[in-house]
Amino acid sequence: MSPKNPPFECGQSPASPVIKRLRRMLTLSTEDLMDDFGEFSEFVKELNDYCWRLTKEEKRFLDSVLRLEKELKDSASFVIAVENVKECHVEVTEAVDSQIEITKETMDVQEEIMGICFNEERRVDDRLAMLNKEMKPLLKRKRALQGEIRDDITKLISRRHSLVDLLDKQGELKEDLKPIEENMVKAKRVKRALEEMHRIAVADAGELGSSTVP
């Protein structure tokens, strides 16, 4: 008896324990069976060691699990790889779909913002048109004021020239005034002397008496 085979009762097939294990494993899903392929393969190999002692039904069972083991060995890695690729593809697709939805939502928000901006731009254009209408008379008035300012500047310059001439004339008059003031001092002295002489003459005339008056 193989050391890894448990003892069996008389009349019981020596392969019964491993058959039970295989039958228990066959209750798993195909995916779980692919994941536990190593253990399943060990049990199949162990059962195959009893092939010369198996009954007809047990041999048919052995053939079935041998075919299954071979297909699992040949195809399980391919199936797992394809399923992994599919799962990865699904995840990537979901991520892309999510990004598409987010992008659409942000585009909707951006379109709303653009609509608000367009409306605001129209209001600004309307306001500018109104301001342009209001500016026309203001510009006309500004040009008129600029003309008046130019005329005033011309007049101011002319008057400044006149002022310079007058200041020069004033300076000349001040210079001319110096000898005049000197003569005025002399004239005042002469005038006072004349007034004094006049007073004396009047007094002397009064002393002559009325008889001498013609």
Rank of each mutant, 00 (worst) to 15 (best):
D151P: 00
E112N: 09
E181G: 01
L167M: 10
K169E: 13
F40V: 00
D108H: 06
D176Q: 15
K136M: 07
A76R: 07
N132I: 05
L54Y: 05
V79G: 00
V96W: 03
P7E: 09
G206E: 13
S16N: 06
K178N: 05
Q99H: 06
G115I: 02
F37M: 12
P6K: 04
R122M: 09
F40S: 00
P14D: 02
S158E: 10
L208G: 02
D36V: 03
E120T: 15
V190D: 11
D49F: 04
V79T: 07
L128D: 04
D176N: 11
K133L: 11
M114I: 15
S211E: 13
R60S: 14
L54P: 01
D74E: 15
R23G: 04
K136S: 07
E105C: 03
I153G: 00
A129D: 10
L166T: 15
L128M: 15
K188R: 15
I149W: 02
Q12D: 08
R60H: 08
L208H: 03
D108M: 07
E196H: 10
T30E: 12
L139H: 05
E134L: 09
I100H: 05
E105R: 14
C88V: 04
V82M: 10
R53Q: 13
A203V: 06
K140E: 09
D204Y: 03
R67E: 08
F43S: 04
E9G: 03
E101P: 00
M107I: 15
M184F: 05
E121Q: 09
I116A: 09
E39K: 11
